[in-house]
Write a protein that binds this DNA or RNA. Sequence first.
DNA 1: TCTGGGGTCCTAGGACCC
DNA 2: TCTGGGGTCCTAGGACCC
Length: 420
Amino acid sequence: MAMSNSTRGGGRGRSGAILHVDMDAFFASVEQGRRPELKGLPVAVGGQGRRGVVASASYEARAYGVHSAMPSGRARQLCPEIVFLPGDHELYSEVSGRIMGILRSFTPLVEPLSVDEAFLDVSGAHRPPVEIGHLIRRQVRSQEGIGCAVGVAAVKFLAKLGSKLAKPQPDPAGPVGGIGVFEVPVGRERAFLAPRPVGDIWGVGPATLSRLSRSGIATIGELAEFPLERLEKVVGQAHARHLHSLANAVDPRPVASESTVKSMSREETFARDVYTHEALGAELAVLSDSVAARLREAGVAGRTVTVKVRFGDFSTITRSHTLAGSVDSGVVLARAAKRLLQAVDVAPGVRLIGVGVSDLEDSGQRQLALDLTGDGARAHSWHEVDRAVDLIRGKFGSGAIRPGSAADSGPGATGWIRPG
DNA sequence: TCTGGGGTCCTAGGACCC
DNA sequence: TCTGGGGTCCTAGGACCC
């Protein structure tokens, strides 16, 4: 409460003290770094199957119009010579960790937003923020071989917009421009924002964009002038207040270097639609086991279990249930997930199944979900089994053991098997 | 060319309680 | 005599982000 973060936006000097650092084409850049023969070539990382999409595209690929979230088939059509790679997320996490380390050498106030971007609060640093931005770029380039853009501003969302404006532009002749560090001038934020499109605001996506557009709002300046009470009717109260503040360059969110995870989930899209509870249940067992292992690794457990089902026509439903106590056991989680799935008609065909756990708490103080899981006192013995499974995986790797019900596909199968 | 996977936050309605 | 109002929990869905 008493920290410096509340006074942002006014009178703290010439320069904004928030940095947003964003890696350029992160996954593709990591791949080009470890395989230099890929440098200068159009590279995409992502799923190559029937239903795959691009997760990251190099600037050479972007020059063809390829971008992330694009179906892989479309990417190949636009750029037949594109080099498609499956992705190595373990490696990306490692590289990300080292880059975050570089950022933390400038300030402890680092808030990672994802593997490839972070906010920094450098208000306590000795050097000017823009200079720090250039130093970061140099170090990330020299130590990891990856380019990045830095935005500098007084508040978070302006720093984020700044890094976007500092990025190079893809071009058939090679990436052009990209000043690397873009500072939003302090004291001139509103004038800077006014002519820009509302879509530049972090949090304005397609749905909000079309609602605003129907109200005649195209620029951030128009949004800033729009009466708040009317805006609330257009996009809802909370969203309206938030957007109205941002449009007026007000963003009180502090850089939060410590965060707690709120939910964990895993999902899987099938190459072809699946039509039976048996097959979906087997997949739920695998996904539940994976989620539960991550929960235990993080030392948390959760009370609310959610199953997500996406049908062949892409319509998506969720079914959730809150247990009396929290779970971190794959078997208990799978059982709850399968019960939820039983109430869903899967005859139309399912393209994706997922399982998630929320309402997380520290597993040290958790209460075992003894009764409402249907497990009775046996939940306690599953705890012992999970610990043994974690030990085996720690020694022999995550593939050393997997849930038996995934292989047996028998309705009540809960044994454990050693693959192969 | 049909659209991945892992998250966060918000809304809205119903149940239930006081 | 229709019957108030608030608070909290739970469930389902949607928007958005990378």
